[in-house]
């Protein structure tokens, strides 16, 4: 019973976001429309900054979705369409930031911290054991 209610709730909650893309925006060509959706999900809406333009109900997001579809219809590649928007609004609109000079820290710091963590863990688990073993040996010798 609770599960069924939960399912209904999840369904209702999903309606809002599922309908940001209005039917009249969609392209007739299913393959192009599929690409447009995928591109839209990677572009940040500038009005409500933590939503993609695919999720956002903002007018600017709608206009950008139309531009994405226009460019695709005109024969642009996915990268060209994303470049068209990024040229105007900067890399900030890319929900997945590119790997370049000023984003090196962003991409590599997690790996650096993982390495530091692994090293610390290795030190922590290895040394005490070795120390006590040496101590034990010394004590045994002393006997």
């Amino acid at each position: 019973m609770i599960r069924a209610l939960f399912a209904v709730f999840i369904f209702l909650a999903s309606i809002g976001s599922a309908f940001a893309v209005l039917p009249d925006e969609m392209l007739k060509d299913a393959a192009l429309e599929h690409r447009a959706r995928a591109i839209s999900q990677e572009l940040r809406c500038l009005v409500c900054q933590n939503e993609s333009i695919d999720d956002s109900d903002a007018t600017l997001a709608r206009d950008l979705r139309m531009i994405v579809r226009e460019r695709l219809t005109a024969g642009d590649s996915d990268a060209q369409v994303i470049g068209f928007v990024a040229q105007r609004y900067g890399n900030f609109v890319l929900l997945k930031p590119p790997f370049q000079a000023d984003t090196v820290l962003l991409w590599l710091l997690p790996f650096l911290f993982l390495a530091i963590g692994l090293f610390a863990a290795w030190r922590y688990f290895k040394q005490p054991g070795a120390d006590t073993l040496e101590l034990e040996n010394e004590l045994l010798k002393g006997d």
């Binding site: 007018t59 600017l60 531009i67 105007r88 900067g90």
Partner: peptide, 13 residues
Amino acid sequence: VSGRTAIDLGVSG
């Protein structure tokens, strides 16, 4: 009216 020029200018609001 269409908002296209504003988008070319990178206007967000």
